Amino acid sequence: MSAPERLRLDGRVVVVSGAGGGGIGTAVTRMAAEAGATVVAVSRSQDNLDEHVAPLAAAGLAVVPLRADASTDDGIAVVIDQVRRLDGALHGLVNVAGGADPTTWMPSTRVSRADWRALFTRNLETAFFMSQAVANELRTTGHPGSIVSVSSVSGMNSAPFHIAYGTAKAAIVAMTRTMAVELAAHDIRVNAVAPGVTQTSASATYVDDDPDRDRRAIALGRRGTPEEQAGAILFLLSDLSSYITGQTLLVDGGLNLKWSHLGADNTSLFLKDESFRATIKEM
Rank of each mutant, 00 (worst) to 15 (best):
V153C: 03
H162L: 06
S275P: 03
H162A: 14
P55Q: 01
A37S: 04
A100V: 09
S45G: 13
A57T: 12
A41P: 09
M179C: 11
V181T: 12
S238H: 02
E137W: 07
V42K: 05
F276W: 10
A3N: 13
N157D: 14
A58E: 14
A180S: 15
A41G: 01
D265R: 07
Y243W: 12
R12V: 12
G263P: 00
D87C: 12
V193R: 00
D87A: 12
V78R: 06
V15R: 02
I147K: 02
G145F: 00
R110V: 07
V28T: 08
G224Y: 05
G263V: 06
I233Q: 03
V134R: 04
F161A: 10
L249R: 03
A97K: 00
Q199E: 14
D210Y: 09
F235I: 04
H52D: 11
A180Q: 09
A219Y: 04
R117L: 15
A202T: 10
P226G: 05
L7P: 14
S203R: 09
L249S: 08
E228W: 01
V181C: 10
G60I: 12
A27F: 00
A202R: 09
S149P: 05
G20H: 11
A35W: 06
T109I: 12
A230T: 04
I80V: 10
M156F: 04
F270R: 06
L138G: 05
A68P: 15
D209K: 03
I76Q: 09
T245H: 01
A32N: 11
L250S: 05
A118M: 15
E34A: 03
V15G: 02
N136Q: 14
S43E: 02
D187P: 07
G20L: 09
P144T: 07
V111S: 05
F161R: 00
I188C: 02
R44M: 13
S242W: 04
F276T: 10
L234M: 07
G22M: 03
R213Q: 10
G20A: 14
L240S: 00
I244A: 04
I218L: 02
V40R: 04
T205Q: 14
G155I: 13
T103Q: 14
A168H: 12
P4R: 07
N95A: 13
S203Y: 06
V78Q: 08
R6L: 14
A97S: 15
G36H: 00
S71H: 08
V197H: 07
A35K: 08
G25N: 09
Y206L: 14
Y165N: 08
L7F: 15
I147E: 00
G75V: 04
L124R: 08
T267D: 08
N191M: 03
A185Y: 00
I163C: 10
F235E: 11
A168G: 08
P226K: 01
E182I: 01
L183V: 08
E5D: 14
G155Y: 01
I233V: 13
R110S: 12
S108F: 15
V14D: 02
G75M: 07
A89P: 13
G21D: 02
R85H: 12
G231F: 04
P102W: 11
R277W: 10
R67N: 02
